[in-house]
Each structure stands twice: as structure tokens, then as C-alpha cells.
Simulated scan of single mutants.
Amino acid sequence: MKTPRKQTAENYIKEIRRKSRRIFSSEQKIQIVMEALRAEMSIAELCRKYSINESQFYKWNKEFLEAGKKRLSGDTTREATSDEVAELRKENQRLKEMVADLVLRYDIVKKSLSILE
């Protein structure tokens, strides 16, 4: 059992910021990067418009360009999105529970058959 840690004010604020952080979908990230590529406004203005840090934008931009480079070079494998990973984890958990249930039923049937003999 975990022992409760004393939460400092700084940690409390960090936790609130972490939980209230906006999550951008991949489509939103692509839209923002594409808007920057059109060069209709500066990167600083674009980041202010979407209330994101410039370093975050440059990270998305780099990921976008790297993915395009991989795709054009013939690398057809792609990484799963976080939604796909979450869905696969749910399915994995469901299958594990089914196997556990079947093993339990098998043990019950096996024991009941051994009693009858």
C-alpha cells in the first residue's frame, strides 16, 4: 500500500496545470502546422492565436515534416495514435478477462469430473 505523500503548494499547482492542460487532436495540430506553412502570419502570431508555446509548435512541425519524409521515402509503417492504443488496451484487457473466466470454468469442470470418478 502506498503511503500518502505530503503535497506541497508547488506540486498542487503543477498537478492542476497538468490536469487542465489542453489536448490538441492530431487534426488540430496538422491544421496549425499547415497554417504556418502558408506563411500568412508569423510563428509568434500563430502561437498567440492558438495559445501554444512556440517550442510546442516547433515540436509539432518537426514531427509533421519527419512523418512526411518517412512516408515519401517509402516507409509505410505508421505509429498508432493514442486513441488506437487506448482501444487496443481495452480490447487486450477484455480478452484477458475472457481467458481468466475460461480457465476458471475449466478448473471447476475438471474438479467436478474428478469428484464423480
Rank of each mutant, 00 (worst) to 15 (best):
N61D: 14
A9T: 15
E54D: 08
M98R: 08
T81P: 00
T8W: 01
A100F: 13
K90A: 12
L37H: 04
K14T: 09
L102V: 10
T81V: 01
K96V: 15
S82M: 06
K69M: 12
E79I: 06
A86Y: 12
T3I: 15
I52A: 00
L88D: 09
S82I: 10
F24A: 13
R22E: 11
L116D: 14
R48N: 15
L95E: 07
A44L: 09
K62D: 07
M1W: 05
I43T: 09
A44R: 13
K69V: 15
L104H: 13
I13R: 07
L95K: 02
R48L: 12
A100Q: 06
K49Q: 15
S42Q: 00
K62F: 12
P4I: 09
Q7G: 12
L46P: 00
K59M: 03
K59F: 07
E87T: 09
I108D: 13
K29V: 03
L104Q: 13
E91G: 01
L72C: 10
L102M: 13
K70V: 05
Y106S: 03
R22F: 13
A36L: 06
I115Y: 05
E40G: 03
K14M: 13
D75R: 04
D101C: 08
K70M: 14
D101G: 15
S20H: 13
A80D: 06
N92E: 03
K69L: 07
M98S: 09
L95W: 04
K62G: 13
S114I: 14
Q7P: 03
F64Q: 01
E66V: 08
F64W: 04
L102G: 08
I13M: 06
L116V: 04
L37C: 03
E87P: 01
D101K: 06
R71L: 08
L102S: 06
M34F: 04
E79M: 12
Q28D: 04
I115G: 04
D83H: 09
V99Y: 15
A39Q: 11
L113E: 05
E66H: 07
R78V: 06
M1H: 05
E63F: 02
E79G: 07
Q31F: 14
E40T: 09
R22S: 07
Q7M: 10
L65S: 06
S82A: 11
E27G: 03
A67K: 05
E79N: 04
S55H: 13
K70S: 14
N61Y: 14
Y106G: 12
A80K: 10
K14E: 08
Y106D: 14
I32S: 00
K90R: 07
I16V: 10
R21P: 00
E54C: 03
R5V: 07
S25K: 04
M41P: 00
A39K: 10
C47F: 01
L104N: 05
K69P: 09
G74K: 02
T81N: 00
L113K: 02
I16P: 01
R22W: 11
V85M: 08
P4W: 12
F64K: 00
D107R: 05
E66G: 05
Q28I: 03
A44C: 03
I13A: 05
R48S: 08
E97L: 07
Y58W: 08
P4K: 05
R18H: 05
A86K: 09
S42H: 00
E45L: 02
T81Y: 01
Y50K: 00
